[in-house]
Simulated scan of single mutants.
Amino acid sequence: MTAAMPFDYDGELVCYQRRLHSVLDIGPDDLVLDVGCGTGQATREAARVASRGSALGVDVSAPMLERARRQAEIEGVGNVEFLQADAQSHPFPAEHFTVALSRFGTMFFADPMVAFTNIGRALRPGAPFVQLVWQAREHQEWSTAIRAALSSGDDRTPSADAAFSLADPKTTADVLTSAGFTTIEVTDLHEPVHYGATAAEARESVLQLLMAAELLSDKDTAVRRSAMTRLDATLAAHDTDNGVWFDSRAWLVTARRG
Protein backbone atom coordinates (compact mmCIF):
# COMPACT_ATOMS: atom_id res chain seq x y z
CA MET A 1 0.00 0.00 0.00
CA THR A 2 1.37 3.43 -0.96
CA ALA A 3 1.77 5.83 1.96
CA ALA A 4 -0.29 9.01 1.79
CA MET A 5 1.57 12.15 0.85
CA PRO A 6 2.13 14.56 3.76
CA PHE A 7 -0.42 17.36 4.03
CA ASP A 8 0.57 20.19 1.69
CA TYR A 9 0.37 23.28 3.92
CA ASP A 10 2.18 25.36 1.30
CA GLY A 11 -0.44 24.44 -1.29
CA GLU A 12 -3.23 25.14 1.19
CA LEU A 13 -1.91 28.63 2.01
CA VAL A 14 -0.69 29.70 -1.43
CA CYS A 15 -2.88 32.84 -1.49
CA TYR A 16 -1.87 33.89 2.02
CA GLN A 17 1.81 33.29 1.24
CA ARG A 18 1.54 35.82 -1.59
CA ARG A 19 -0.08 38.35 0.72
CA LEU A 20 2.55 37.83 3.42
CA HIS A 21 5.46 38.04 0.99
CA SER A 22 4.08 41.26 -0.52
CA VAL A 23 4.16 43.14 2.81
CA LEU A 24 7.45 41.87 4.23
CA ASP A 25 10.03 44.65 4.00
CA ILE A 26 13.11 42.44 3.84
CA GLY A 27 16.42 43.76 2.53
CA PRO A 28 19.50 41.92 1.28
CA ASP A 29 21.32 42.22 4.63
CA ASP A 30 18.47 41.28 6.94
CA LEU A 31 18.58 38.51 9.55
CA VAL A 32 15.13 36.90 9.50
CA LEU A 33 13.39 34.78 12.12
CA ASP A 34 10.43 32.65 10.97
CA VAL A 35 8.35 31.49 13.94
CA GLY A 36 6.46 28.22 13.50
CA CYS A 37 8.01 27.79 10.06
CA GLY A 38 6.50 24.39 9.26
CA THR A 39 7.98 23.09 6.02
CA GLY A 40 9.84 26.35 5.51
CA GLN A 41 8.37 27.95 2.41
CA ALA A 42 8.20 31.43 3.95
CA THR A 43 11.68 30.98 5.43
CA ARG A 44 13.18 30.08 2.07
CA GLU A 45 11.48 32.98 0.32
CA ALA A 46 12.76 35.36 3.00
CA ALA A 47 16.28 33.92 2.66
CA ARG A 48 16.28 34.52 -1.08
CA VAL A 49 15.52 38.21 -0.53
CA ALA A 50 18.02 38.48 2.34
CA SER A 51 20.75 37.36 -0.04
CA ARG A 52 23.65 38.71 2.04
CA GLY A 53 21.92 37.93 5.33
CA SER A 54 20.17 34.78 6.49
CA ALA A 55 16.90 33.26 7.63
CA LEU A 56 16.23 30.92 10.56
CA GLY A 57 13.06 28.85 10.66
CA VAL A 58 11.94 27.51 14.05
CA ASP A 59 9.30 24.84 14.63
CA VAL A 60 8.54 22.04 17.10
CA SER A 61 7.80 19.46 14.38
CA ALA A 62 10.78 17.32 13.39
CA PRO A 63 9.05 15.83 10.28
CA MET A 64 8.16 19.28 8.95
CA LEU A 65 11.68 20.56 9.54
CA GLU A 66 13.09 17.54 7.74
CA ARG A 67 10.99 18.44 4.72
CA ALA A 68 12.06 22.08 5.04
CA ARG A 69 15.76 21.20 5.03
CA ARG A 70 15.36 18.82 2.11
CA GLN A 71 13.48 21.40 0.06
CA ALA A 72 16.05 24.12 0.82
CA GLU A 73 18.74 21.79 -0.47
CA ILE A 74 16.75 20.98 -3.60
CA GLU A 75 16.16 24.69 -4.26
CA GLY A 76 19.77 25.61 -3.53
CA VAL A 77 18.95 28.08 -0.75
CA GLY A 78 22.18 28.14 1.24
CA ASN A 79 21.60 31.00 3.68
CA VAL A 80 18.76 29.31 5.56
CA GLU A 81 18.75 27.16 8.68
CA PHE A 82 16.01 25.25 10.49
CA LEU A 83 15.89 24.65 14.23
CA GLN A 84 13.63 22.31 16.21
CA ALA A 85 12.68 24.40 19.22
CA ASP A 86 9.79 26.10 21.00
CA ALA A 87 10.04 29.81 20.22
CA GLN A 88 8.26 30.52 23.50
CA SER A 89 11.28 29.45 25.52
CA HIS A 90 14.25 29.02 23.18
CA PRO A 91 17.25 31.20 24.18
CA PHE A 92 17.68 33.16 20.95
CA PRO A 93 20.63 35.56 20.81
CA ALA A 94 19.53 38.92 22.19
CA GLU A 95 18.74 41.71 19.72
CA HIS A 96 20.03 39.62 16.82
CA PHE A 97 17.26 39.46 14.22
CA THR A 98 16.17 42.41 12.08
CA VAL A 99 12.83 40.92 10.93
CA ALA A 100 10.47 38.32 12.42
CA LEU A 101 7.56 36.69 10.63
CA SER A 102 5.06 33.94 11.22
CA ARG A 103 2.59 32.34 8.81
CA PHE A 104 -0.07 30.87 11.11
CA GLY A 105 2.55 29.70 13.60
CA THR A 106 1.90 31.79 16.70
CA MET A 107 -1.61 30.66 17.68
CA PHE A 108 -0.40 27.51 19.43
CA PHE A 109 1.77 29.01 22.18
CA ALA A 110 0.88 27.86 25.68
CA ASP A 111 1.50 31.42 26.90
CA PRO A 112 1.44 34.05 24.10
CA MET A 113 2.67 36.79 26.45
CA VAL A 114 5.80 34.81 27.36
CA ALA A 115 6.32 33.80 23.73
CA PHE A 116 6.01 37.30 22.29
CA THR A 117 8.30 38.66 25.00
CA ASN A 118 10.91 36.04 24.12
CA ILE A 119 10.62 36.81 20.41
CA GLY A 120 10.87 40.51 21.17
CA ARG A 121 14.14 40.00 23.04
CA ALA A 122 15.58 38.33 19.95
CA LEU A 123 14.73 41.35 17.75
CA ARG A 124 16.69 44.56 17.42
CA PRO A 125 14.88 47.72 18.57
CA GLY A 126 12.45 48.86 15.91
CA ALA A 127 12.52 45.54 14.05
CA PRO A 128 9.18 44.46 12.50
CA PHE A 129 7.22 41.37 13.51
CA VAL A 130 4.65 40.32 10.89
CA GLN A 131 2.13 37.56 11.60
CA LEU A 132 -0.76 35.85 9.89
CA VAL A 133 -3.33 34.41 12.32
CA TRP A 134 -6.80 32.99 11.74
CA GLN A 135 -9.90 35.00 12.47
CA ALA A 136 -12.75 33.38 14.42
CA ARG A 137 -13.91 29.89 13.49
CA GLU A 138 -17.22 31.11 12.02
CA HIS A 139 -15.22 32.88 9.28
CA GLN A 140 -13.36 29.68 8.33
CA GLU A 141 -15.32 27.57 5.89
CA TRP A 142 -12.47 25.03 5.88
CA SER A 143 -13.17 24.43 9.56
CA THR A 144 -16.97 24.75 9.72
CA ALA A 145 -17.68 22.68 6.60
CA ILE A 146 -15.26 19.87 7.41
CA ARG A 147 -16.37 19.81 11.04
CA ALA A 148 -20.03 19.59 9.95
CA ALA A 149 -19.20 16.71 7.62
CA LEU A 150 -17.17 14.67 10.09
CA SER A 151 -18.91 15.47 13.35
CA SER A 152 -21.81 13.53 14.79
CA GLY A 153 -22.64 16.23 17.32
CA ASP A 154 -20.83 18.69 19.57
CA ASP A 155 -17.47 16.98 19.23
CA ARG A 156 -14.49 18.83 20.67
CA THR A 157 -11.30 19.28 18.69
CA PRO A 158 -8.61 20.84 20.89
CA SER A 159 -6.16 21.26 18.00
CA ALA A 160 -8.65 23.26 15.92
CA ASP A 161 -9.74 25.31 18.93
CA ALA A 162 -6.12 26.35 19.46
CA ALA A 163 -5.91 27.61 15.89
CA PHE A 164 -8.24 30.48 16.82
CA SER A 165 -6.51 31.59 20.03
CA LEU A 166 -5.48 34.92 18.46
CA ALA A 167 -8.77 35.53 16.63
CA ASP A 168 -9.64 38.59 18.75
CA PRO A 169 -7.50 41.43 17.34
CA LYS A 170 -7.80 43.57 20.48
CA THR A 171 -6.58 40.73 22.68
CA THR A 172 -3.69 40.07 20.32
CA ALA A 173 -2.75 43.75 20.22
CA ASP A 174 -2.91 43.98 24.03
CA VAL A 175 -0.62 40.97 24.42
CA LEU A 176 1.86 42.37 21.92
CA THR A 177 1.84 45.74 23.69
CA SER A 178 2.45 44.09 27.05
CA ALA A 179 5.30 42.12 25.48
CA GLY A 180 7.04 45.36 24.44
CA PHE A 181 5.84 45.84 20.85
CA THR A 182 4.59 49.12 19.41
CA THR A 183 2.96 50.45 16.21
CA ILE A 184 0.55 47.52 16.08
CA GLU A 185 -1.73 47.28 13.05
CA VAL A 186 -4.29 44.58 12.24
CA THR A 187 -5.55 44.14 8.67
CA ASP A 188 -8.44 41.98 7.51
CA LEU A 189 -7.50 39.46 4.80
CA HIS A 190 -10.04 37.36 2.89
CA GLU A 191 -8.57 34.53 0.80
CA PRO A 192 -9.51 30.96 -0.16
CA VAL A 193 -7.47 27.95 0.98
CA HIS A 194 -6.65 25.02 -1.30
CA TYR A 195 -7.09 21.39 -0.26
CA GLY A 196 -6.25 19.46 -3.42
CA ALA A 197 -6.38 19.32 -7.18
CA THR A 198 -9.39 16.98 -7.04
CA ALA A 199 -12.00 15.92 -4.51
CA ALA A 200 -10.23 12.58 -4.10
CA GLU A 201 -6.91 14.28 -3.39
CA ALA A 202 -8.62 16.68 -0.98
CA ARG A 203 -10.16 13.73 0.87
CA GLU A 204 -6.69 12.29 1.51
CA SER A 205 -5.49 15.69 2.69
CA VAL A 206 -8.39 16.27 5.07
CA LEU A 207 -7.99 12.85 6.68
CA GLN A 208 -4.40 13.72 7.60
CA LEU A 209 -5.51 16.74 9.62
CA LEU A 210 -5.41 16.41 13.40
CA MET A 211 -8.91 17.89 13.50
CA ALA A 212 -10.20 14.97 11.43
CA ALA A 213 -8.42 12.44 13.61
CA GLU A 214 -9.93 13.98 16.74
CA LEU A 215 -13.45 13.95 15.26
CA LEU A 216 -13.25 10.33 14.07
CA SER A 217 -11.05 8.66 16.67
CA ASP A 218 -13.72 7.14 18.90
CA LYS A 219 -16.40 6.53 16.25
CA ASP A 220 -17.63 3.09 15.21
CA THR A 221 -17.56 1.82 11.62
CA ALA A 222 -21.10 2.89 10.72
CA VAL A 223 -20.62 6.43 12.03
CA ARG A 224 -17.30 6.76 10.24
CA ARG A 225 -18.86 5.53 6.99
CA SER A 226 -21.61 8.16 7.25
CA ALA A 227 -19.01 10.83 7.99
CA MET A 228 -17.02 9.85 4.90
CA THR A 229 -20.14 10.08 2.75
CA ARG A 230 -20.82 13.60 4.05
CA LEU A 231 -17.19 14.58 3.58
CA ASP A 232 -17.16 13.37 -0.02
CA ALA A 233 -20.29 15.43 -0.74
CA THR A 234 -18.75 18.52 0.88
CA LEU A 235 -15.53 18.21 -1.09
CA ALA A 236 -17.39 17.61 -4.34
CA ALA A 237 -19.40 20.79 -3.73
CA HIS A 238 -16.15 22.76 -3.42
CA ASP A 239 -14.42 21.13 -6.38
CA THR A 240 -13.80 23.73 -9.09
CA ASP A 241 -11.98 23.63 -12.40
CA ASN A 242 -8.91 24.71 -10.43
CA GLY A 243 -9.04 22.41 -7.41
CA VAL A 244 -10.91 22.17 -4.11
CA TRP A 245 -11.12 25.52 -2.29
CA PHE A 246 -12.70 26.71 0.95
CA ASP A 247 -13.32 30.27 2.10
CA SER A 248 -11.34 31.76 4.97
CA ARG A 249 -10.36 34.99 6.72
CA ALA A 250 -7.18 35.94 8.53
CA TRP A 251 -5.62 38.86 10.34
CA LEU A 252 -2.35 40.33 9.16
CA VAL A 253 -0.78 41.61 12.38
CA THR A 254 2.21 43.94 12.13
CA ALA A 255 4.17 45.35 15.06
CA ARG A 256 7.59 46.69 15.92
CA ARG A 257 9.87 45.84 18.78
CA GLY A 258 9.97 48.83 21.12
Rank of each mutant, 00 (worst) to 15 (best):
A163I: 01
R70K: 14
V193S: 09
L56E: 04
R48N: 12
S248V: 04
A255H: 00
A200H: 05
S248M: 03
V193W: 01
R147L: 11
P63W: 05
G53L: 10
C15E: 15
R44Y: 04
H90W: 07
I26N: 00
Q84W: 06
L252H: 00
A197S: 15
G120T: 02
P28I: 10
R147T: 14
D59M: 00
A55Y: 08
V130L: 09
F181P: 05
I74L: 11
G57I: 07
G27M: 04
S165R: 02
F92M: 00
E75Q: 09
F109I: 01
G258C: 15
T187E: 14
T39E: 08
G53M: 04
R52E: 08
S102Y: 02
P169Q: 09
A127C: 03
A3L: 13
Y9A: 03
L31N: 11
G120P: 00
T172L: 03
G105T: 00
V77F: 08
L189Y: 09
M5L: 12
L235G: 00
P6E: 12
D174K: 11
V223K: 11
A72E: 00
V35K: 08
T106N: 02
V60N: 13
A162K: 13
T177Y: 13
D155G: 14
P6L: 08
C15Y: 15
D10Y: 07
E95C: 11
D241V: 07
I74V: 13
S159G: 11
A122Q: 06
F246S: 08
D34K: 00
R19Q: 11
E201A: 10
L207G: 01
Q17V: 12
D29G: 11
V35E: 04
E138R: 10
A110F: 09
T171S: 15
L56T: 03
G27H: 10
M228K: 12
P169N: 06
I74R: 08
G258M: 11
T182G: 13
V49N: 04
P28M: 12
A145N: 06
M211P: 06
D155E: 15
S178T: 15
T254L: 08
L20I: 01
F164W: 08
A62Q: 15
